[in-house]
């Protein structure tokens, strides 16, 4: 049952990406390009998602102690607006603006097997691994310094 839920949620997400056309980088660029023939669609995608998620979260999820499966509700507890957040969001914005592709559309469009998507995803995974490796090194260096 738990596995079916994860798969179902993924299916709905992929469908949302296709229906909203967010899998099309040209559609995303139409939103990001405010000086051209501006296409506000992306804002409506986010609006539709928020109109569905936000009330459901506050009414049905927030009051709960655990998920229906009994698992912990892994809602982020970090509230700090710190350097990693700002630098990370800036770098993400830079990459997003360059190609018009963000993680959701890239993983959905992987089904098409296009070479450009494969390149993007391989590099994206590489970038995430770089940060993971770098933060592990930092933790180890700090442990060594304190021992």
């Amino acid at each position: 049952m738990n596995r079916v839920i994860a798969l179902l949620a993924g299916i709905l997400f992929g469908m949302g990406m296709v229906v909203s056309q967010m899998v099309d980088p040209a559609k995303v660029m139409g939103f990001l390009n405010i000086s051209g023939n501006w296409d506000p669609s992306l804002a409506f995608v986010m609006g539709g998602a928020l109109l569905m998620f936000s009330p459901c979260y506050h009414l049905f999820i927030k009051p709960r102690q655990t998920a229906i499966s009994g698992e912990v509700l892994k809602v982020p507890t970090t509230t700090a607006i710190d350097k990693p957040l700002i630098i990370g969001a800036s770098l993400f914005g830079l990459g997003w603006g360059l190609a018009g592709i963000c993680p959701g559309p890239a993983l959905t469009a992987l089904v098409t097997g296009q070479q450009e998507i494969l390149l993007f995803l391989a590099a994206m995974a590489g970038g995430q691994l770089l940060v993971i490796g770098w933060s592990k090194l930092r933790v180890r260096a700090m442990q060594r310094a304190s021992s």
């Binding site: 949620a9 709905l12 056309q21 409506f44 569905m52 979260y57 049905f60 229906i68």
Partner: peptide, 29 residues
């Protein structure tokens, strides 16, 4: 704004939101 597709954008967005609700409500993720 001839490329603007408000209805499919809203519908697609609602699917994304529903997916997020289901994953968080049932699996806590």
């Amino acid at each position: 704004m001839e490329n603007f597709t408000p209805w499919s954008a809203l519908a697609g967005g609602a699917l994304l939101g529903l997916s997020a609700v289901i994953l968080l409500l049932f699996r806590g993720r």
